[in-house]
């Protein structure tokens, strides 16, 4: 990277999201290295709750230093395949997380 990272996505090799069964969505940040992991690991249940408009107590975060991965799961806010579900596989829901500005 030539420029300093501005967002959580800038710290990662890949950010992805997907259904975990019909009732949950899960997403992962694959961080570039241990330094990036150390910066991303501050992500809290409250931050995710604000970002995705879900309850903090429903958010599960798994921090996996061996893989430089932060994994986040929460119940799907919109029923899969319902009238208002415009992302059937939840495959584009990583974007708000990837776009989240890094804290100062």
């Amino acid at each position: 990277m030539t420029e300093s990272p501005q967002t959580f996505g800038d710290l990662a090799l890949e950010v992805r999201s997907k259904n975990a069964g019909p009732f949950w969505v899960t997403m992962e940040l694959f961080l570039r290295d241990a330094v990036s992991y150390a910066r991303a690991v501050v992500l809290s249940e409250e931050t995710i709750a604000r970002l995705y408009d879900v309850r903090a107590e429903d958010v599960q975060i798994f921090r996996i230093p061996a893989l430089n991965v932060v994994k986040i799961s929460f119940p799907r806010p919109v029923a899969q395949g319902g009238l208002r579900d415009s992302d059937i596989h939840a495959g584009q829901h990583h974007v708000p997380l990837a776009s989240l500005p890094l804290p100062d």
């Binding site: 975990a20 899960t26 992962e28 694959f30 798994f62 893989l67 994994k71």
Partner: peptide
């Protein structure tokens, strides 16, 4: 080791 371990993350709520 990374590609194999990382597959436990795929479409799972809890990777462990």
């Amino acid at each position: 080791p990374i590609s194999v371990a990382a597959h436990m993350l795929y479409e799972t709520v809890n990777p462990f």
